[in-house]
Simulated scan of single mutants.
Amino acid sequence: MSLPRRPSLKLLAGIYPFAAGAMGVNLFFAALIGSWLGLPVLTPWQAAAGGLVIGLPATWAFACHILRLMEKAEGE
């Protein structure tokens, strides 16, 4: 078993806008659900800003997943 490759900046840059958007939406809806427990509700702008931050590790994880799929496809 070889060590996994690191994702290229090109791949990360291509995935990041989608990951940041998805994380922003997820954060906003999680805050709405959290309001049932008495937590503060985030504004859409706060959720978007949080998505920009949370989108970074999500981008890295998804890019690594894409690389594993590419390596598996090349091996078959």
Rank of each mutant, 00 (worst) to 15 (best):
G51D: 00
G75A: 15
A63L: 08
P40L: 08
L56K: 01
A58C: 10
M23P: 00
M1H: 12
K10M: 14
S35M: 11
K10Y: 12
A61C: 05
G38A: 11
P7K: 05
P4T: 04
A63N: 04
A31P: 06
W36T: 02
A58R: 07
G75K: 14
V25W: 09
L56Y: 02
F29A: 05
G55I: 02
A20C: 09
L9K: 10
L52F: 11
R68M: 11
S8I: 05
L56R: 04
V25R: 08
L32V: 13
L37V: 08
F18L: 14
H65V: 11
T59W: 11
L11E: 03
L11V: 07
P7W: 10
S2G: 11
I15V: 15
I66S: 08
M23K: 13
K72L: 12
P57D: 02
L32C: 12
L12Q: 04
I15H: 05
P40T: 05
L42W: 10
A73Q: 04
A63Y: 03
T43N: 08
F29I: 11
M23C: 14
V41Y: 03
S8F: 06
A48P: 00
R68F: 13
M1V: 09
A13W: 06
K72P: 00
L32P: 03
R68A: 15
W45G: 12
W36C: 10
R6K: 15
F18P: 00
Y16N: 03
G24C: 12
W60A: 09
